[in-house]
């Protein structure tokens, strides 16, 4: 298990992290969400030893993380980087060996991982001659090759098309099944919501919400009602006594119950206006929650 305990980091007057704590157990995937500059990359760099915390510490398996532990972690930095003139295979073999693997094993593993992510045909080509998508795959292979127990991925989905997103999600699921702990950051909140076991939302270096996705979504204790009429009309929802409109999503009206409000009364009001096609009570989406907590 990875534990970040009270990490604090300042760059001059800028507070990058202000007592950040979070945990990533093995076999779980932890989404890391926050605005640009919220401190996600700094937290990841401290985890990898690329920066040092002014206060707090990183623990791995219950004790302070060592250089040896870190060699075994898989890392995909936000600023992607590979040796442009080295072949994909040589490159991944090199990273495997830097992680502590022997020469022959590194070669076998590198070939296998490149094969599994669909680079099998092109492993002998210099990276600079690969397409952007394939370079991205190679980057992922660099993070995965040493069979890491912890994967730290900074914006792994940025720049991927929907097919690429699904492929990466598949790769991550395989890693989780082997018991890898995964920590990743993303701005694609619907994706984070779908993919993560747990999430941490940070703002200005501080945790503003953290826990299992459902718990975080329900953390405000206020549910939303989503109602759509077959006619598509929405005027009925204005001026209800027990709920207020907070938004529209397609032809759905999104309402929030006011204190003492009754969802059945809202349903009755909707049925008065026409045939109801959708009526759903749910916690606010991550996107809505995020907007609310980081702008608070």
């Amino acid at each position: 298990m990875l534990e970040l305990n009270g990490l604090t980091k300042r760059y001059g007057d800028v507070v990058a992290l202000d007592g950040l704590s979070m945990k990533v157990p093995p076999g779980r995937i932890h989404g890391f969400v926050g605005r640009n500059g919220a401190g996600k990359t700094t937290a990841m760099r401290i985890t990898l030893g690329l920066a040092s915390a002014d206060a707090g510490e990183v623990q791995w398996k219950g004790r302070p993380v060592t250089i040896g532990d870190r060699r075994g972690f898989g890392y995909m930095p936000e600023e992607r980087g590979l040796y442009p003139k080295m072949t994909a295979l040589d490159q991944i073999v090199y990273f495997a060996r830097l992680s502590g693997m022997g020469g022959a094993k590194a070669r076998t593993e590198a070939t296998a991982i490149l094969d599994s992510i669909g680079l099998g045909e092109r492993i002998g080509e210099p990276v600079e001659r690969l397409s952007l998508g394939n370079q991205q795959r190679c980057q992922l292979a660099a993070a995965l090759v040493a069979s890491p127990e912890l994967l730290v991925l900074d914006e792994p989905f940025s720049g991927l098309d929907p097919v690429g997103v699904d492929a990466l999600a598949g790769v991550l699921r395989t890693q989780l099944d082997r018991g890898t702990a995964v920590m990743y950051s993303s701005h694609q909140l619907d994706l984070v919501e779908r993919l993560s076991d747990e999430i941490t939302i940070i703002d200005k270096g501080r945790v503003v919400a953290s826990g299992p996705v459902a718990a975080v979504r329900g953390s405000r204790g206020v549910d939303q009602l989503r109602v759509a009429l077959e006619s598509g009309g929405t005027a009925w929802a204005e001026n209800l006594s027990g709920a207020k409109v907070v938004g529209h999503d397609g032809d759905e009206v999104v309402l929030e119950l006011l204190p003492g409000g009754d969802d059945q009364a809202v349903l009755d009001a909707a049925r008065q206006a026409g045939r109801v096609r959708t009526f759903r009570r749910e916690a606010p989406s991550l996107t809505e929650l995020f907007r609310e907590v980081v702008s608070a």
């Binding site: 990898l48 030893g49 870190r70 930095p77 992607r80 830097l98 992680s99």
Partner: peptide
Amino acid sequence: ASRVVEILLAKAP
């Protein structure tokens, strides 16, 4: 320039 240094530094001092 190729940013590969960030991966290297995560592996070696």
